[in-house]
């Protein structure tokens, strides 16, 4: 189990992490979800002992990352945010290097990386700098896994990677999870929350919620309406000025609209839009997703 208790960390004036407490069960696929600057990286670096918390304590499988940093570092497989492999070394050389550094060999733990490594093995003589984004990611994952860590710590592994590679990457994580490795991932992409067993929504160094993605969505109290018409920008401005509007924002091909009142105001909104010469109006109640929840939680905090 991983336990954060009242963790805070500042850099000069900037409070990167503010009083964070949460726990992560062993064997979970856990996601920290939040935009740049939310404090995810700082939290990760405190967990892997590269930074020391100003306040609070962290426990990682019974170890204290501060005091037992040598042991902690042995059991963590860490992939920092930036692509941290050596561009001028080949796939094989990178992997060999990390294996030797961690006191193991590729053969010893091959079973762990086999599924992933097989996909890049045909190019093993190619320099890492010449790989595509998806391939780099796979290689980095292999390097982080090569010493059979108990905890895999991945800091924004999918940032800047295209949708296909992202999907593949999450599939790989799921299969690793089934091998008993605890995985902690951070990501700025809200849509990836659904892939995790449990997520922490983070912003400005604070945690909005820690729950399963389903529970987060279920906790969304308000009625959400999806609105569509012929001129979305005009509709957005119109609804924003509508007296009963609580919040309205673009959401994919729709606008997501929340009313101040509890009743379902579909008729009212339809009238309002019609009054402003909008056509082809389509209004449906929808289920919120993580992003709606994030927006709502942020809004609650800032009000």
């Amino acid at each position: 189990m991983i336990q954060f208790t009242n963790i805070s960390k500042s850099f000069d004036e900037v409070k990167a992490v503010r009083n964070v407490s949460l726990s992560i069960d062993e064997g979970q696929l856990f996601g920290f979800i939040g935009p740049d600057g939310a404090g995810k990286t700082t939290l990760f670096r405190m967990l892997n002992s590269l930074l020391i918390a100003d306040e609070g304590s962290i426990e990682l499988f019974g170890l204290d990352p501060h005091k037992d940093y040598k042991k902690v570092r042995q059991i963590i497989g860490y992939m920092p945010g930036k692509f941290s492999l050596y561009y001028d070394l080949s796939i094989e050389e990178n992997l060999n290097f990390f294996a030797t550094v961690f006191g193991t060999t590729i053969e010893e733990n091959y079973h762990l990386i086999e599924d992933i490594y097989k996909q890049i093995e045909p190019f093993k003589k190619r320099h890492a700098g010449k790989l595509s984004g998806g391939m780099k990611q796979k290689l980095a994952l292999c390097c982080a896994l090569i010493h059979k860590p108990k905890l895999l710590l991945l800091d924004e592994p999918t940032t800047g990677v295209d949708a296909v590679s992202r999907r593949e990457f999450w599939d790989m994580l799921k299969s690793l999870k089934s091998k008993g490795i605890t995985i902690v991932v951070s990501t700025p992409y809200m849509d990836e929350a659904g892939m995790c067993d449990s997520v922490a929504l983070m912003q400005n160094g604070q945690i909005h919620a820690v729950e399963s993605p389903k529970a987060i969505v279920d906790n969304f109290q308000k009625e959400l309406l999806a609105v569509k018409c012929n001129d979305m920008y005009k509709a957005l401005l119109t609804l924003r000025n509508y007296e009963n509007c609580y919040n309205v924002y673009p959401f994919g091909e729709y606008l997501h609209y929340i009313d101040k009142r509890d009743s379902k105001p579909i008729e009212d909104i339809n009238d309002c839009l019609l009054k402003h010469d909008l056509q082809e109006i389509e209004i449906n109640p929808v289920k919120p997703d993580i992003e709606d929840c994030f927006i709502e939680l942020t809004r609650k905090l800032s009000v």
Binding site: R45, N48, S49, L50, K70, R73, Q74, I76, Y78, M79, P80, G81, K82, F83, S84, L85, Y86, Y87, F98, V101, F102, G103, C143, A144
Partner: peptide, 13 residues
Amino acid sequence: ELGSMEVLLISPL
């Protein structure tokens, strides 16, 4: 700059 220093620090080196 590459970020590999973090990984090296984490390693048993």
